[in-house]
Amino acid sequence: MSLGHIAIIGFGAIGRDLVDILAQNGPPSRLSLLVREALVAEIEAEVGKAITVTSDLETLLASAPDVVVECAGHGAVAAHGAAILSHGTDLVVASAGALADAGLAAALEAAARGSGAQCVVPSGAIGGIDALGAARLSGLTQVAYTGTKPPAAWAGTPAQDVTDLRTLTEPFTFFEGTAREAAQLYPKNANVAATLALAGLGMDRTEVHLVADPTTSENTHTFAVTSAALDFSMRLVGKPSPRNPKTSRSTVYSIARAVLNRSAAIAI
């Protein structure tokens, strides 16, 4: 089955990689991009006529995409998410941390219920979401997550107000709190915490620890689950995106899987 018309919000590291992956595994019958107005001409020159580029959401929706994939950050979810779902178009949200805003999460849910569209949050850089979601139905007791990245990945975040990231010689835990707090303070780094929270105990009961580790060049995600059905823990070591060290390379493949499964004869 054809992938149909895929629209992507944003053309940064994740958006560019997603275009390449879909081209190799589809390709879509049509591909569109929604970007800032200032970038339209530049991106049109880069991608050519094979991809439609616009800065106007109404124009994008009028072209009838089968699904819109958000790859542009929390602000894009807030600005466009509810309108896309209200239009009856499915939305894949890469920036799961945006849903830490309770008002935005409620607006997206209301829009989806009103139109019959679906808002999909892929697992992103984490695994085990299927087991966590199943365990949730049995009753969860605890979900605790630790995200460890090299200091450079935390540059430009509140972490640099807590410690000098440039001079660290050993792992340093600079944040301990809830998934909601982590997602709001570290919007480009803590989407995994938000995804676990959405699948599990919620934003305010999911425990989060964030660590800057000068001894690693990789992004490590570790979490433990206690429930009535099963107890388990997972450790995933993600390679950083070549285009953006704040993002695990596996994130875009998870997003691509969510898109490709829409047209799969057998989806798993």
Rank of each mutant, 00 (worst) to 15 (best):
Q118D: 08
Q160L: 04
L132T: 03
R180N: 14
M203A: 12
L196S: 05
D161R: 10
F175A: 11
L185R: 15
T215D: 02
A199C: 15
G133L: 07
A144N: 03
G127S: 14
E170I: 01
T146C: 10
L210G: 06
S138F: 10
G147Q: 12
A117H: 11
V121H: 12
D213N: 10
L196Q: 05
L140H: 04
A183F: 07
T222N: 10
V143F: 01
A134N: 09
E176P: 02
L201N: 07
E207T: 07
P158D: 12
T215A: 01
T173Q: 14
L210C: 10
L196C: 05
T169C: 01
L165R: 06
G200T: 02
E218A: 11
V225N: 03
M203N: 09
C119F: 11
G156R: 07
S123Q: 15
T141F: 12
A197F: 04
T146W: 02
L198I: 11
A144F: 13
T222E: 07
G114K: 11
G114D: 06
A153W: 01
T148V: 01
A117E: 13
N219Y: 10
E207P: 00
D161C: 08
S217Q: 09
Q142N: 09
I129P: 07
D204W: 04
R180H: 14
K149W: 03
T220S: 09
V120R: 12
P214C: 05
V192P: 10
P214S: 04
D213K: 00
E207D: 10
T216I: 05
A112V: 10
T163P: 00
N191C: 15
D213M: 04
L198W: 02
T148F: 00
C119E: 13
N189I: 04
L210I: 02
L185A: 15
A131E: 15
A194K: 02
C119I: 09
A183C: 06
G128C: 09
G127R: 13
N189Y: 08
G116H: 11
L210R: 09
Q160A: 14
T178R: 12
A159W: 08
P187I: 03
P214E: 06
F223R: 01
I126K: 07
G202P: 13
L140I: 02
